[in-house]
């Protein structure tokens, strides 16, 4: 049985959400793409740990200003990729807001979320160090990965991570509750 998994890609405008999604779903880039004819461009067959999956990905690019719509997308998603650009500190600073919204709408802290630092191919433009991404992910109870949609580095891995988290959660080994992390965060801010 192929299992369908709904993933939602969130993040600030311009961080490369569409590139991440399209480059995953389409392995090559020669074809001419038009959205109205691309009902399947947000679907991807994948074998993860020996299991077949159909990934359904909701790309929200372009509608960042429609903040009220996000609620609905989050409710429908099972796993989330919160994307920032490693070349934009501002996009990194907005990660937390997305994370909180996911927790609130899902009414749970243990929702599978992967924090994705994209655009690592732009080495010289980097504004967010890897360790800062790791620290934030830890604090927010997310998995963490850095990617490049352009060079396909960790592209599939980012999505597969989310699927594995969903599976782990089903199996009862849910991620550690964030409550502890929150306390930790307070300590840090005092220091």
């Amino acid at each position: 049985m192929v299992q369908t998994v709904k993933l939602v890609v969130l993040g600030d405008g311009g961080v490369g959400k569409t590139a991440l999604t399209l480059r995953l779903a389409l392995n090559y880039f020669g074809a001419s793409l038009a959205p109205s004819r691309c009902e399947d461009s947000y679907r991807k067959h994948a074998i993860i740990d020996g299991q077949p999956y159909m990934l359904e990905i909701l790309d929200t690019a372009g509608q960042e200003e429609y903040t009220a719509l996000r609620d609905q997308w989050i409710r429908e998603g099972e796993g989330f990729l919160i994307v920032y650009s490693t070349t934009s500190r501002a996009s990194f600073d907005r990660v937390e807001r997305f994370r909180h919204q996911v927790a609130r709408v899902k009414d749970s802290d243990s929702v599978p979320v992967v924090l994705v630092g994209n655009k690592i191919d732009r080495v010289h433009e980097r504004e967010v160090e890897t360790r800062h991404g790791e620290e934030l992910a830890k604090r927010l109870g997310c998995a963490f990965i850095e990617t490049s949609a352009k060079t396909r580095v960790n592209l599939e891995e980012a999505y597969f991570m989310a699927v594995r988290m969903i599976e782990a959660r089903k199996g009862g080994t849910a991620a550690k509750p964030v409550r502890q992390k929150t306390k930790k965060q307070r300590k840090c801010s005092i220091l």
Partner: peptide
């Protein structure tokens, strides 16, 4: 209107 914006990004990103 939001969907036009998504589609424009889609075409821009999805075509070389």
């Amino acid at each position: 209107v939001g969907l036009f914006l998504t589609d424009l990004i889609f075409v821009f990103e999805g075509n070389r």
